[in-house]
């Protein structure tokens, strides 16, 4: 079964054609990597799949729901219920502690549960730093808080836009370990990355160029060529 189907999806910003006639299906439990040069439309695609932007053209079906027909409220609901977002810049609410940042994701979703949030932080190795403010955490630690937050509501689809872009090797390894764990437990993962190393962990890799899918390959092949 497919969790995501893009048919003839285009996105234009004024005169900029960020995405052109994209066809893509992602199966349940698949790990997909999106690669490509800067400006090729990777983030644009994540925004559309993540229900943060509407495609100018084409159809996007996420978990059986056609996104282009949904009102903003409906998009918010899908974002909340089905998607876990991880960003390149470790976006955290600056005045809330690590724990509070995870708790608000529960709060917007349904019911806050501090124990569960603490458990999520422990699972990314941050049990001891739960009461720290983002400014008191390292970049890698902040990214792991973001991951804990993305996972807290058990999303069907995890979207990560360059999750390791600002991390050193050790932290990159930690994050990849977490993604592997999630993948192992059946989550669908879409990762945008510039690093072939990160891309090689995926089941399938697509390469975008000028808003089009230029190539499709597998993580294993990518690894060999790298």
């Amino acid at each position: 079964m497919n969790i995501l189907e893009l048919k003839d999806v285009s996105m234009t910003y004024g005169t900029v054609k960020a995405l052109q006639h994209i066809d893509l299906t992602v199966g349940q439990g698949e790990w997909l990597a999106i690669m490509g040069p800067s400006g090729s439309g990777k983030t644009t695609m994540m925004n559309i799949v993540g229900c943060m932007d509407k495609a100018s053209d084409g159809s996007v079906v996420l978990d059986g729901q056609e996104l282009s027909k949904l009102p903003p409220r409906g998009l918010t609901a899908i974002r909340r219920d089905k998607i876990g977002l991880i960003f390149q810049q470790f976006h955290l609410v600056p005045y809330l502690t690590a724990l509070e940042n995870v708790v608000i994701a529960q709060y917007y979703h349904s019911m806050p549960d501090e124990d569960e949030a603490l458990e999520a932080l422990r699972s990314v190795g941050l049990g001891e730093r739960a009461r720290h403010l983002p400014s008191q955490l390292s970049g890698g630690e902040q990214q792991r808080v973001c991951i804990a937050r993305a996972l807290i509501n058990c999303p069907k689809l995890i979207l990560a836009d360059e999750p390791t872009g600002n991390l050193d090797e050790a932290n990159e390894k930690l994050v990849l370990e977490i993604l592997h764990r999630l993948h192992g437990s059946g989550s669908t993962i879409i990762v945008v990355t510039h690093s072939p190393d990160v891309g090689s962990h995926a089941d399938r890799v697509i390469v975008l160029e000028h808003g089009k899918i230029a190539r499709t390959t597998t993580g294993a092949l990518l690894h060999k060529s790298a």
Partner: peptide, 16 residues
């Protein structure tokens, strides 16, 4: 702006 966008991205309704 970022914080507001972030809250929305993780599922906050405009009303929230």
């Amino acid at each position: 702006r970022r914080e507001i966008g972030l809250k929305k991205a993780i599922g906050a309704e405009s009303s929230a």
